[in-house]
């Protein structure tokens, strides 16, 4: 039996993921029957990841960059075990927490408190542990007065703050943050950046997806660049970001503009 302390935290081996989406806006039985009658194809396939391989050693902070629709979120969902791979294999050692982690906000009619509790329980936390965590989450998000309001009344910044607070306070072995650093106002961004710096300094594997290249540069030990579903580059953050910005042809200005 392999020991958990051996080997990398995450090993992705020749991973491909294909989405099969129904072309209908929402799939219906009557629609399917109609189209079967007309012998039309009902699904469209999108290959979101092609033959991606990389390893993340334990304790590494890995930055993931790439254009919109490159497949970053898909990769994160596969590592978290939410999407099954179409081909290839992923090995993960440790408990994973995804951002928007815990599906916070899965029901906008429910209050912030109910969403945090339900999300935490679904993610496998015990009630006792969740109770301790809950206080920390609320304190960090500074949303005390709003926790009993339905989440549909939250502003998008408040929404993001709560999601970020949940994600970073769960103390998983592997933390996945998919574009959460740019939520909130300037003050909360500073605070979340500080929190990220603290987390990155600990012995924890982190995958950080962000378009804020400045934070990737500051926080990460390594970086990968995904381009149209393929792994374009894996190296030191500086090298990857330079190549990426050169490729995008935007120059450092555009990068610093969106910095935390």
């Amino acid at each position: 039996m392999p020991s958990a302390s051996e080997g990398p935290s995450i090993a992705v081996d020749r991973l491909s993921v294909t989405y099969r989406t129904s072309i209908e806006r929402s799939p219906t039985l009557s629609g399917t029957l109609l189209r079967l009658g007309r012998r039309q194809r009902t699904v469209r396939t999108t290959q979101a990841l092609k033959d991606v391989s990389f390893e993340v050693p334990k304790g590494t902070v890995l930055g993931v960059i790439g254009a919109n629709g490159a497949g970053k979120s898909t990769l994160m969902r596969t590592v978290a075990g939410i999407l099954p791979p179409t081909e290839g294999r992923i090995e993960v050692r440790g408990r994973v927490s995804t951002l928007l982690a815990l599906g916070v906000g899965f029901n906008r009619e429910l209050s912030g408190r109910e969403n945090v509790v339900l999300g935490g329980l679904a993610a496998g936390l015990s009630r006792r542990r969740l109770q301790d965590k809950y206080e920390e989450i609320v304190a960090f998000s500074e949303l005390e007065e709003f926790m009993d309001m339905p989440m549909r009344t939250y502003s998008s910044g408040m929404y993001g703050r709560l999601a970020f607070s949940v994600a970073v306070n769960m103390e998983p072995d592997i933390l996945i943050i998919d574009e959460a650093l740019s939520v909130g106002d300037a003050r909360f961004r500073r605070k979340s950046f500080e929190k990220m710096r603290e987390l990155c300094g600990q012995d924890r594997t982190i995958l950080l997806v962000s378009h804020a290249l400045g934070s990737i540069r500051d926080l990460c030990d390594e970086a990968i660049w995904i381009h149209r579903g393929e792994l374009r580059m894996a190296d030191e953050p500086d090298a990857v970001i330079d190549a990426y910005t050169t490729f995008l042809d935007v120059g450092e200005d555009a990068v610093t503009l969106e910095d935390v």
Partner: peptide
């Protein structure tokens, strides 16, 4: 850094395959 005692002192190992 973890002040709290973890409930599951077991570490997890997942393999995802098609």
């Amino acid at each position: 850094t973890s002040v709290l005692q973890r409930d599951d002192e077991l570490s997890e190992h997942h393999v995802y395959e098609p």
